[in-house]
Design a protein around this nucleic acid. Structure first.
Length: 162
DNA sequence: GCCAACGTTGGC
DNA sequence: GCCAACGTTGGC
């Protein structure tokens, strides 16, 4: 009997401003787990909703800070569900057009895996052979949830682990 | 803090 | 459905 074919875990890059939520915040969070609420971009939403699966790896990226770069690793522990903040009146993430019977925005839960001793800076990613095509190294790349190719993930992990 | 790049909104 | 105006992101 053929074994049930399992999809290989994928790797994603999630951007966060550490002033808002950092890899340290994730490590200190209850159960070292957080909901990734607040995604309000359709392309990122589609990835979260359709492609991000339990067991996938997440490169935790710090933006708008010093140093900018990949700060550590997390893993997906819960797949897409309605982001509760879209229905919270007056909340920053409220979306009055979204209805509970057909939520527009979703979130996933991620759990801390590792914190790199040193952030792998964006400048290093840009200068590293094999990462020329990586989305985050492209000019004007604003997507907050990005797919990472397996070969790219391998290189970034090697850099992060020294 | 600046501002280029990008995404969304809304008048027509 | 076009596209100018506006708002946001995020590197620098």
């Amino acid at each position: 009997m053929a074994a049930k074919k399992k999809t290989e875990p994928r790797t994603w890059l999630f951007k966060s401003e550490p002033d808002v939520f950092s890899i340290d915040d994730l490590q200190k969070a209850p159960k070292q787990t957080t909901s990734w609420e607040g995604v309000r971009n359709y392309q990122a939403r589609n990835l979260l909703r359709d492609d991000v699966k339990v067991g996938d790896r997440v490169l935790f990226y710090h933006s708008r800070t010093e140093p900018i770069g990949v700060a550590g690793v997390a893993e997906v522990v819960r797949e897409a569900y309605a982001d509760p903040f879209q229905f919270e009146a007056g909340h920053k993430y409220e979306d009055p057009k979204s209805k509970p019977e057909a939520p527009t925005w979703v979130t996933v839960d991620i759990r801390f895996v590792e914190r790199f001793d040193e952030v792998v800076p964006l400048a290093t990613l840009k200068a590293t052979k094999g990462l020329e095509q990586m989305m985050v190294t492209q000019r004007g790349s604003r997507l907050s949830i990005q797919p990472v190719r397996p070969a790219e993930a391998k290189i970034v992990l090697k850099l992060g682990r020294g």
